[in-house]
Design a protein around this nucleic acid. Structure first.
Length: 778
DNA sequence: CATTCCCGCCACCGG
DNA sequence: CCGGTGGCGGGAATG
């Protein structure tokens, strides 16, 4: 049916009168901020009225009738237009809520087949403007991550020597027509080989996490990767003008030097059209014509933001830019922010990672089972905050789940788990005091005050009394944002601008932990130099993934990695249960490092220290439960899952950036004007303060030693590796946080009781968490 | 004819 | 086995 008439009135259920106009309307509406909220409602509402106008415009010449469809020429269905419509639905810089994208809905609303939407989404994904949340659903990140992504892409592009490749190709053209065979290939091969671009196959650099998802095996290569590479070409080439031909040749060269079919070339070009259309819609490029000796050919010019080499600067800029909206929103609705926005947002972030998705699902499943037998979790109700209350309950379930024998998961997990536990131990080591202060009542108490009291020095000395709070810690300047959740916890986010690698964590009760250490990194030493980029390396060792290289096996590796990742997570859970009793509190961490993870902390412990601490280990937290952020409001399912998600990015940033942005803003604001803070509600203040602390820190950080990353061919492979390591990282991060966490004195003053909760016995709470479901209710 | 690129078949993949 | 994804390329619309 479709073939004949473009418009598909028939197929569409009569109920939904989608008209072309509605789409237009959407575009218009896009301008307004509220679009998002209304989008859902809109579908029903806006069916009728405007149709007439739009149609008329387009099709005046025809008598009004069915031709309406006829008109919708190709152009109307063009990907570009479609993309515009799509983009119009979401704000460039979504600050808070998120925009979730449901493919079905969108397809319906935009009146296109789903297949078409994939095209758009895929390229957006390559730019990290969206990320897949789950089947059929994506999260809209907007342009928050854009500059980081571009930066990352540029870096990779440089590493790949695209510039040279382009040169070569151009030269060739002059020499002979075009056509790549023989020598050309050889040459390319040489280039490529030398550069080891092999990693390129999956340039996920940009924080792309999907590969991590384990879901994607080989498929994802194409559009997404092509898109990234294409963008790289722009970023790398000087004139910033790229012709499809050149782009296609380069990309083909990368993929397989051997076969250069014409058909392949053609297909590639076709895909490029798809990509260019969306990039054009994004206004990142525009079509131009280049006249060369050979003649005039169509090409595209980069019109997007320039990306600076300096990573740091760029990052900062980006961040700040992002901030405003978020901040304002944040500030306005103080209470709400805390309650609604914050939690929600965070949750979303947490959920984003593909790996999480799986977890979530599985967990969900488990949870359901368990739910039937409700574990009466913590009396969350006690908590003032609704959101929290909701959260804890769910969280409580997690442990319960863990206890239940999880089907197959546990087995697989086991191996990995072992590793994890090990790493956990290591981490533990680094936290000397943890054991020492088992009671850490503070933890129970939501407030961070104790922590706050501490000097902001943030760095090393650790000893924060307890609170899981997080801090901007260490000189390492690794920024983290931690989000605490627990029955009694509240969320805190910190961000340290210096490095832009904010991490979000959700921590749920902690045994007291103090430490100085954080560094426990085993790996640090070796990779210190590259610290900037590859967190992976360090991690790798533990995981022992073959770093090997790159080229060929990547895919397999990825997969395996992904699996491992999952396993790790699972493992974590299982570990928890084992720990449960022992731990008074447990951590629920969800650290999400945005960008690269720096381990400079390598300050690290000496081995000896570790050894000393090791004794303490058992206490520790191996049980970090990760992840999970329940989102009460939105989708319950996603929320409850414990998982940890880390986005490793060497080069990239994570989706979380949004959250990060928020934080940053806050810090900025607060820092600039502390006094203003007082106007806010306590809860808000708390929140703010934390940030402030972070902000304060900023200046301090010299930063930046981490620096430019050496271009190493391996980078790619590393990134992939990151995934595996996540578990470890997470744990590390968490520990670090804990260890470092402390706030400045002033902060403490300001901070009011955040979440005043009656002091419940911590233990009880904890126990509840761990307790298997089926408690009281049943 | 050349350039664009829509359309939708169909293979994959995870559930 | 199912339904979401998305590679892929024919061939239609456009220039």
């Amino acid at each position: 049916q479709a073939a004949t008439s473009p418009s598909e009135p028939r197929e569409i259920p009569p109920a939904d009168p989608w008209t072309p106009t509605s789409n237009l309307k959407m575009l218009i509406s896009a301008a307004s901020p509220e679009i998002r909220s209304r989008e859902r409602s809109r579908e029903l509402s806006n069916n009728t009225r405007e149709v007439p106008q739009a149609k008329h415009c387009l099709q005046e010449h025809l008598p009004g009738d069915e031709y309406e469809k006829s008109q919708p020429n190709r152009k109307e269905k063009s990907l570009r237009l479609l993309c515009h419509k799509f983009l119009a639905r979401y704000p460039d810089y979504p600050s808070t809520e998120d925009s979730f994208i449901c493919l079905d809905e969108v397809a319906e609303e935009l009146n296109v087949e789903r297949r078409r939407i994939y095209g758009i989404v895929n390229v957006l994904e390559s730019l990290h403007m969206v990320s897949r949340l789950a089947k059929n659903r994506y999260v809209w990140h907007g342009r928050h991550n854009l500059s980081k992504t571009l930066q990352a892409l540029k870096k990779v592009g440089e590493e790949n020597r695209y510039t040279q490749q382009i040169q070569i190709i151009k030269k060739r053209e002059y020499e002979h027509e075009f056509d790549f065979d023989g020598e050309r290939n050889e040459e390319k091969a040489r280039y490529f080989g030398s550069s080891e671009h092999s990693d390129m196959s999956f340039v996920e650099l940009p924080g792309t996490e999907f590969h991590a998802a384990s879901v994607n095996s080989r498929k994802d290569k194409s559009l997404r990767v092509m898109s990234q590479k294409f963008v790289m070409l722009f970023l790398v080439s000087t004139p910033q003008v790229v012709s499809l031909e050149v782009a296609a040749k380069i990309l083909i060269g990368e993929d397989q030097l051997e076969d250069l079919d014409k058909s392949k070339f053609k297909t590639k070009i076709r895909r490029f059209y798809d990509i260019t259309n969306v990039l054009i819609s994004l206004k990142l490029i525009e079509k131009v014509h280049v006249t060369e000796e050979r003649g005039r050919k169509p090409a595209f010019k980069w019109t997007g933001p320039e990306i600076s080499q300096d990573i740091q600067d760029t990052k900062l800029e980006t961040t700040y830019a992002t901030c405003p909206p978020a901040v304002s929103a944040f500030i306005h609705s103080k209470a709400q922010c805390l309650k609604n926005l914050f939690p929600l947002r965070e949750r979303q972030n947490f959920i984003r990672h593909p790996s999480l998705i799986k977890l979530v699902k599985s967990i969900e499943k488990d949870r359901r089972k368990i739910q039937s037998a409700p574990a009466s979790p913590v009396k969350i109700s006690a908590s003032t905050d609704q959101n929290f209350s909701a959260f804890p309950s769910k969280m409580a379930q997690v442990p319960a789940i863990a206890k239940h024998p999880l089907e197959g998961q546990s087995k697989k997990a086991r191996k990995i788990g072992m590793k994890l536990s090990q790493s956990a131990l290591e981490c533990t080591l680094s936290l000397p005091e943890a054991v020492a202060k088992p009671e850490a009542p503070c933890t129970t108490t939501p407030t961070l005050q104790p922590a706050l009291t501490q000097p902001l020095s943030a760095c090393t000395p650790s000893h924060s009394s307890v609170s899981p709070v997080i801090l901007p810690h260490t000189f390492s300047s690794v920024p983290y944002a931690i989000h605490l959740h627990s029955s009694q916890t509240y969320t805190v986010t910190t961000y340290s601008p210096s490095f832009m690698k904010p991490v979000l964590c959700a921590v749920t009760g902690i045994k007291s932990i103090n430490s100085k250490a954080l560094n426990k990194t085993t790996t640090d030493e070796r990779d210190s130099q590259t610290a900037t980029d590859d967190p992976t390396k360090s991690l790798t060792a533990k995981e022992k993934l073959p770093i090997k290289s790159q080229t060929s096996s990547q895919r397999g590796l990825k997969r395996s990695q992904a699996l491992q990742e999952n396993n790790l997570i699972k493992r974590f859970r299982s570990d928890e249960k084992s720990l449960d009793t022992s731990l008074t509190f447990f951590l629920c961490g969800y650290p999400i490092p945005l960008t690269q993870y720096v381990h400079d902390n390598k300050a690290g412990f000496s081995n000896t220290e570790k050894a000393e601490m090791s004794s303490l280990q058992h206490t520790t937290y191996s049980s970090l439960i990760v992840g999970v952020s329940p989102r009460t409001t939105y989708e319950p399912k996603a929320v409850n899952i414990p998982a940890f998600h880390i986005t490793p990015l060497n080069i990239m940033l994570s989706p979380t950036s949004t959250g990060a942005a928020l934080v940053v803003n806050n810090s900025c604001l607060s820092s600039s004007n502390t006094s203003s803070v007082q106007n806010l509600s306590p809860s808000v203040l708390n929140f703010t303060l934390h940030h402030v602390a972070a902000g304060v820190q900023v200046p301090v950080n010299p930063v930046l030693q981490h620096v430019p990353v050496p271009l190493q061919p391996k980078s790619v492979s590393h990134s992939s590796e990151n995934v595996h390591l996540q578990g470890e990282k997470v744990s590390k991060n968490i520990l670090q946080y804990i260890g470092h966490g402390r706030l400045s004195g002033k902060v403490s003053a300001v901070i009011p009781p955040c979440v005043p909760r009656e002091p419940q016995e911590p233990q009880t709470a904890t126990e509840n968490f761990f307790r298997t479901p089926g408690g009281p209710n049943t």
